[in-house]
């Protein structure tokens, strides 16, 4: 009996293996088509860029080339400047972003739940929502100087608005029938908040957090470009004024990498909630 049971799956597996082996490449390609197409496009882009940089059609001082960017990147790492720049920009970004989180989400929850709070704060939120908040940079520098303070403040201002708005929308779009059920079970406001409002608003809060990353990165780059003495944005500006397009692209790539990594992290967090969402997975 036991042998019988063992034999069956083995036969099955060899069959399947055979099928994969006969058209191994095709199977591999179709399984990873997305990655192969995307990766291939990037590779092609770099090849064309390198050829154009070496061909003499364009001045390499303007367009640089992958090999030059690579060399500049290695030099940047070896000089040790990169670590200080990353540290400064990192501290600025996380302080500003965290502060925005601590302030923005509770305000959003209150605005979503209590219409009076919403009525009071709405003019301010609307104002900051529709203004390019980066315009406040000069005044922040007047108040806080060119050090980290003004950068933290601009990152805070950039990312706090999507936190507030998304959290508020999340709370407001919660199915009121759920609240009615909780009330019928005599739930306290705190219980309603803990069991319905917070879990119900979380998907919307997370998409706010993702928006905040992009906006926070704009804040940090523009802030450091405008007035600073260290940081990735500062290095970017410096490279630009010295016509160092290679170093400039290195900085752009670092910022892009951080942005992609941070959003990817939040996508992972978001997936935790996927199993109960009908529209995903």
């Amino acid at each position: 009996m036991a042998e019988n049971i063992q034999v069956k799956p083995t036969a099955n597996t060899t069959n399947r293996l055979k099928r994969t082996r006969t058209n191994g490449f095709k199977a591999f390609y179709f399984k990873r088509e997305r990655e192969i197409l995307g990766g291939g496009a990037i590779f092609l882009f770099f090849v064309v860029w390198e050829i154009l940089g070496a061909s003499g059609i364009f001045n390499p001082m303007f367009i640089s080339s992958p090999s030059r960017v690579w060399a500049a990147g290695v030099a940047y790492v070896e000089s040790g400047l990169i670590w200080n720049d990353l540290r400064i920009s990192g501290i600025e970004f996380f302080s500003g972003y965290l502060l925005a989180l601590i302030v923005g989400v509770p305000i959003g929850l209150l605005m979503g739940w209590y219409w009076r709070v919403r009525a009071i704060l709405d003019p301010f939120v609307s104002f900051f929502y529709s203004t390019p908040r980066i315009a406040f940079l000069p005044v922040l520098i007047i108040w806080l100087g060119i050090g980290m303070g003004s950068k933290i403040a601009i990152i805070f201002m950039m990312s706090v608005i999507p936190f507030v708005v998304n959290t508020m929308t999340g709370v407001r779009t919660i199915d009121q029938n759920l609240v009615k059920v909780a009330r019928a079970f005599n739930a306290s406001d705190l219980q309603i908040f803990r069991t319905i409002i917070l879990p119900g608003a979380i998907p919307s809060i997370i998409s706010g957090l993702r928006l905040g990353i992009g906006l926070g990165l704009i804040g940090i780059v523009v802030g450091e470009m405008y007035a600073a003495n260290a940081g990735i944005g500062y290095r970017l500006m410096e490279a630009g004024t010295m016509f160092r397009t290679d170093l400039l692209f290195v900085c752009v790539l670092i910022i892009a990498g951080i942005g992609i990594a941070a959003s990817e992290l939040l996508v992972r967090v978001e997936r935790i909630f996927d199993k109960w969402r009908p529209d995903r997975s």
């Binding site: 199915d175 029938n177 059920v181 079970f185 739930a187 219980q191 069991t195 119900g200």
Partner: peptide, 23 residues
């Protein structure tokens, strides 16, 4: 109520316990 109003993030059994959990 007319709408089932189940908490979408809770499993069926945890939805059934919801009310008495509140108590």
């Amino acid at each position: 109520f007319q709408s089932a109003a189940l908490l979408p993030w809770r499993t069926i059994i945890r939805n059934v316990t919801y009310g008495i959990e509140l108590w």
